[in-house]
Lab assay of single mutants.
Amino acid sequence: GIDPFTGEAIAKFNFNGDTQVEMSFRKGERITLLRQVDENWYEGRIPGTSRQGIFPITYVDVIKRPL
Results as ranks from 00 to 15, higher is better:
2 I>R: 12
47 P>M: 09
36 Q>L: 10
6 T>G: 10
32 T>S: 09
45 R>D: 02
43 E>V: 08
13 F>D: 11
36 Q>P: 07
20 Q>V: 15
8 E>I: 14
8 E>S: 11
8 E>P: 05
7 G>S: 09
7 G>W: 15
50 S>W: 08
32 T>Y: 08
47 P>A: 11
13 F>V: 09
9 A>V: 07
44 G>N: 00
66 P>Q: 05
9 A>W: 05
48 G>M: 07
52 Q>W: 10
38 D>N: 12
53 G>T: 01
59 Y>K: 06
41 W>M: 08
21 V>I: 12
1 G>M: 13
37 V>W: 08
46 I>N: 01
40 N>H: 13
64 K>R: 12
42 Y>L: 10
39 E>D: 13
44 G>F: 02
27 K>Y: 06
60 V>A: 04
11 A>Y: 01
32 T>H: 09
43 E>H: 09
47 P>G: 08
11 A>V: 02
10 I>V: 12
20 Q>R: 11
65 R>M: 15
25 F>S: 01
1 G>H: 11
4 P>S: 14
41 W>F: 09
24 S>N: 07
50 S>H: 11
27 K>R: 10
55 F>Y: 01
9 A>E: 00
4 P>F: 15
32 T>G: 05
31 I>D: 00
11 A>H: 01
43 E>I: 07
19 T>Y: 07
6 T>E: 13
57 I>W: 05
51 R>S: 03
55 F>A: 00
63 I>W: 06
25 F>L: 06
31 I>F: 01
37 V>R: 05
28 G>W: 04
58 T>S: 14
52 Q>F: 11
18 D>M: 15
13 F>C: 14
39 E>N: 09
38 D>K: 08
47 P>L: 09
22 E>Q: 13
28 G>M: 03
51 R>A: 03
56 P>Q: 03
64 K>A: 07
63 I>G: 05
10 I>C: 07
9 A>D: 01
21 V>K: 15
2 I>T: 14
67 L>F: 07
4 P>Q: 14
46 I>P: 01
18 D>I: 14
48 G>Y: 08
60 V>G: 02
31 I>V: 05
33 L>H: 05
21 V>L: 14
11 A>I: 02
36 Q>C: 08
67 L>R: 03
47 P>T: 10
13 F>H: 10
32 T>F: 08
6 T>N: 12
42 Y>N: 01
22 E>G: 06
3 D>W: 12
18 D>W: 11
15 F>I: 01
53 G>N: 01
57 I>R: 08
55 F>R: 00
43 E>F: 14
44 G>S: 00
56 P>Y: 02
38 D>A: 08
44 G>K: 00
32 T>E: 15
2 I>N: 15
43 E>K: 05
12 K>F: 04
40 N>G: 11
39 E>Y: 08
45 R>Q: 10
26 R>M: 13
23 M>N: 00
56 P>K: 04
21 V>H: 14
16 N>M: 11
18 D>A: 15
3 D>S: 13
2 I>W: 13
49 T>N: 03
67 L>A: 15
47 P>D: 15
19 T>S: 14
9 A>P: 00
7 G>N: 09
22 E>S: 08
32 T>R: 07
